[in-house]
Structures are given as C-alpha cells and as structure tokens.
Design a protein around this nucleic acid. Structure first.
Lengths: 194, 194
DNA sequence: CGTTTGCTTGAATTCTGTCAAAGCAGGTGG
DNA sequence: CCACCTGCTTTGACAGAATTCAAGCAAACG
C-alpha cells in the first residue's frame, strides 16, 4: 500500500528514503478506500485532505447553472487530488472530486502535510517539484484551451496523456477538452484517416 | 525603487521586514529598465531571470504557425514575470515576454532566488504564498476557458481583473480570453444594454 | 433478456472567426 | 493650426466550426 507512495517520493525527490524516514511518512497518512462513483469531495464541503491515489482514478469537475459538467482535471495512480483553494482558505469547495473506479488512497490533512514537510526532506522536495510541474502543465493547458482548435486540442492530448484515452470514457475526455462529446467523436473519426 | 518590492513582500508574507533583511533582499536583485515594445524574453532564448515589475506592464504570449499571437498572461505593477519552464529546465522558451509600457524591473536569477529564500524568511514565505495563489488562479482560468461562453468569459474577467480593461488594448484582452477582437467588440456592445 | 451506458451519426441552429472596410482617436511634422 | 499618419476599435457580410437535439447502435450488466 505505502510502497507506491515511497516509490513516488523517491522518484520525484531523486533521493533514497531511509527506513526511519519511511516510518515518519507512513504515520503521517491514513488509508482510505472509496468505491467507484463515490466522492472524495463534494461541492459546498470544505476540503480537509490531500489524497494520493495508490490505485484507481478520479475526476475533478464543476457543474454549471445549466447542469453541464466541466472536468478540470483527472487523477490516476500516483497523482495527488484535492481542492487547493478550499484546503488553504477553508472555504466551501466549488468542485466535485469523484472516484471513477474502486480506489485506494492515502490521505493527509494540510497541517499534517506541513508538519511532514519539516520532518522529511524528501517529502518536502517532492512537494516542491510537483508544484512546479503542476504550474507548467497548467500553463500548457491554458495555452491549449485558448489557442488551439478542437482538433489540435485532441492531438495534443494524444501526445501528452495517451493513457487518458484508455482509462476514461470519451464523453469525459470531451468535457476535459471543453468540447461536446459529438464534436470529439467526429474529430476522432477524421483522425483515423491520417 | 525597492520600496515597491519591500511593500509587496511585507504584504504577501504578512510580516515586517527588518533593516538587515531589506539589505539582503536589495542586494539579491538588479535593476533593469525596458522600454515599451522591447522584450524581457524572446522565443528560443533560455529564461535567465525572474522579474518583479516595479512600474509598467507586460504580456507573455506565443506565436503559432499561422502567425497568430496568444496571450498566456499579463503582468502589472507588483507582479512577477518569467517563464518558469525555461528557467527551471534551462530549455529554450516557447514564449515571448514583451513590455507594453516603459518599465522598471527588479530581476533575480534562479540560483539567486533560491539563495535568498534561505536567507530571508519573508521572501521565502512570499514565494510560497504566490505559488499557491498562482495555482488557484490558473485553475480558475482553465475553468473559464473550457466551460464558459465568450460572454461569460468577458464578464468573469470584468469581475476578476477590471484593471486589465483600463491598462490593455481590447485586441490583447481578446487574445487573453481566446476570442477574436471582433467577437469581443460585439460582446461589449451587447453588454452595455444590461 | 431487457436495461443501461457509451459512442456515433445526421440535420438544423447558433456561435465564432475571417476578411474587408470604415470610423476614431492621439501624435507628428509641416 | 491643420493635414496626415498610425494604431485601435467597430461594423457588416460571409464562411466555417461547434453545439444542440434526436435517433440509432453496440457492448456491458444485472
């Protein structure tokens, strides 16, 4: 269960974890199972935990006045999920985070994570690295969203996150790209002949 | 010149700067003036500095194959500019950063910034706070880009960054929102009657 | 088996971009 | 002081792109 987390931290921090550091990290997290279709976070609730996905997948999305869902981001194994805004400001979230498969998570509270960053240099490094990576990824996504046609967005996704297409249904991919499912279907049809 | 920076750090970190800490910070930065229309960073160059805007404004944008410009973000007084991706990875940037007015900047290298984070607790706090703020703002922007109609994007901008409309020409606002200047013009025309 | 869910297709509609042209400042030089 | 730029914004007409609505199909599931 915790091995996935240890591997992830060693990979991102570029360091090896000593046994005592593993202990510290292990005790800072709690295990949590969430079944397919159930929620890690609901709109209106304050986000209390950061979750590390050991197994399973998730989507973070909003629902607008017309009842349409917009997927802000996905989560897969070794990804972190939470609503940072709600977590930091202790405000009700405007997002849902739903698990798309039966999932196993390791969760930690914000104070817990802050404490752990002081106790474990590797964990601290990992968080820094991920924050940077996240910022760069988001900037690229903004670029895609404002500057690309539907077709370009799709082939960009194909190049960047090919695993998404195997793990998530097309209507969610469409929502993630800001397209209607029908438009995405037509794009894929054309793309085959190239 | 440095007062704007000190005020900004005190505001964001929520602490008061002691005189010796001001000295440390001051010596970590260099002054730089860039005239209207000139570049802080060019596509293909490696970004060497992080810039704090004391006076002036900037836009960060890409140019696609068709020659169209897409504005990723703006910069105003007390905002920071740089291409994080290029800065951290030492790779050629895919962005331009152009000053839109005669500007005064305080610049610092990445190693310089890292050193300063160790030397000044206030500066370190400021960077952390801004990173979080940035991440939240970018998530909102993604939400706007994939989930809102052109009209909603405009009124969202009106609510979030009203100062943009006074400081930047409409064709740039349009580019920032991912719209054509003509579409934005028509939206604004309709919006008056509401 | 019947139901559900996800994906595709078609036709009509709405929205947005493109192209071309004209209006409207502010600034400059004669 | 005026004529002439030049950069920015607005308009109109048209073409193209994407959404919506409706229907059909196939695989998955109880």
């Amino acid at each position: 269960m915790y091995d996935a987390l240890f591997n992830h931290i060693e990979l991102k921090s570029g360091r090896t974890l000593a046994d005592n550091e593993r202990d510290v990290i292990m005790h800072a997290f709690h295990q949590k199972r969430i079944r397919k279709g159930e929620y890690f976070l609901r709109e209106g609730d304050v986000c209390k935990y950061i979750g590390f996905i050991v197994k399973g997948s998730a989507r973070m999305f909003t629902v607008d006045e017309k009842g349409h869902e917009h997927i802000i981001r996905f989560g897969l194994e070794s990804w972190w999920i939470s609503d940072h805004e709600s977590l930091v400001n202790l405000t009700p979230s405007t997002y849902f985070i739903e698990m798309l498969e039966d999932s196993e998570l390791l969760i930690i509270s914000l104070p817990g994570a802050r404490e752990l960053r002081h106790k474990s240099r590797c964990f601290n490094l990992t968080v820094s690295v991920l924050d940077k990576f996240q910022a760069i990824a988001m900037q690229k996504r903004i670029h895609a969203a404002i500057g690309m046609t539907a077709e370009e967005k799709y082939s960009d996704l194909l190049a960047t996150y090919p695993e998404f297409l195997e793990r998530f249904p097309m209507n969610m991919i469409a929502s993630y790209l800001g397209l209607s499912p029908e438009t995405l279907s037509r794009i894929r049809k054309n793309a085959i002949h190239k």
